[in-house]
């Protein structure tokens, strides 16, 4: 085979591999695995809620978009369709109960439903922010029971 043919074939192969890698790891990259993700912060549920309540801007800058592990006394577990939410209530307002709402990863739905209100639980999830009534953690997993 002529040298220039080898070079062209080589370049095409490298180009194809690069395209595949970009497709797999950039364009089509996976969502983070929130169950395995390391928590950026570990705090008590009450402290976290108070942080948002007393200074929303500072708390948002610190915690929004982060994976956070919280420990607290569970108030209740709510189920709407396939969405199971573990709720820590700290306040009462226009929307009724206010606090931290943790929506579970589907695989933790059953475990969350078995949690006892008033028991201490540790939950880890992705913090999407405070909507003036509740702090929302999503993709939550239960760390211990």
């Amino acid at each position: 085979m002529k040298t220039w043919v080898k070079i062209v074939v080589g370049l095409v192969v490298v180009g194809l591999i690069a395209m595949l890698l970009v497709y797999k790891f950039v364009y089509n990259k996976q969502h983070p695995d929130y169950e395995k993700a390391e928590a950026a912060f570990t705090v008590s549920a009450r402290e976290l809620y108070q942080a948002y309540k007393s200074n929303k801007a500072a708390a948002s800058a610190k915690y929004n978009g982060k994976v956070i592990a919280i420990t607290g006394n569970l108030s209740k577990v709510e189920t709407v369709d396939s969405l199971v939410t573990a709720v820590f209530v700290f306040n009462q307002g226009d929307f009724g109960d206010e606090g931290i709402r943790c929506t579970m990863l589907h695989k933790f739905n059953d475990a969350a439903n078995k949690l006892q209100p008033d028991g201490e639980v540790k939950v880890k999830g992705y913090c999407t922010g405070y909507n003036e009534t509740d702090l929302i953690l999503e993709k939550c997993s239960i760390i211990n029971q």
């Binding site: 969502h31 978009g65 922010g129 909507n131 999503e138």
Partner: peptide
């Protein structure tokens, strides 16, 4: 009231 970070996309890159 809607939290923008609560929008879920099929592709992580789009999100």
């Amino acid at each position: 009231k809607v939290l923008m970070k609560s929008f879920e996309f099929e592709k992580a890159l789009m999100q």
